[in-house]
Amino acid sequence: MATETRILEELGETKDLLDDVGGVPPRWPRGEEDDRSPFRDSERGYPSRNAKLGMAMFLGVETMFFAGLIAAFLYLRLNASEWPPASQPRLPVFVTGINTLLLLASGFTMWRVQGPAARQDSGRPARGLGMTFLLGTVFLVVQGYEWARLVRFGLTFSSGSYGATFYTLIGLHGLHVLGALTWLAALQLAAKKKRLAPHHPRVFLCAMYWYFVVALWPVLYGLVYLV
């Protein structure tokens, strides 16, 4: 058990997290390490952490999910004779552009919470998380408001492939932001109560997901609104 605790400390892991990730990765005997393996966490000789790796793969899944949607969108759009169709409303490029900046800013505040700089000082992450949450919420509210306006102008799910692609792509991204916000809120509560360190794995995982929803947005904005 003593070894286990030491390794835990080295990895900066906590016991409760370990219960969820199946225990300490085994240490390899000297000389038998698989030097060819690209999956090593380098110097310390431990494999990269389970949760981090699992999260990275989940983001791969999400990427492919949106890749499918985006490919379908492009397929329809490139085959369409006119885009946007003459009778349909135009998308609010400017407001959404501002909104894009807000979301990017939330990525920055998240990075302040747990990025390399945050590791130096041991300040509590709760405030930065709150800021991120706020920016994300504003983004979502503005999106919802613009949606409501578009619906009033007559653009709906069923107004041809223009409406279908718009609402599906943007709506599913919005759902992901909503999910990420819920996670952020839960994390913030935990951060307040348990005084999580900024580099705690739970903060790290949530941040990875947040970066994903932030990074996805400019791609969608560019493809759906701008070009």
Partner: peptide, 24 residues
């Protein structure tokens, strides 16, 4: 990991076509 999400997105579109009246 990389193939299944594409089916997932496709069935979502199909379901939207059937239930929400989209035209994918």
């Amino acid at each position: 990991l990389f193939a299944l999400p594409v089916l997932t997105s496709a069935v979502v579109m199909l379901l939207f076509d059937r239930l929400l009246g989209t035209h994918w």
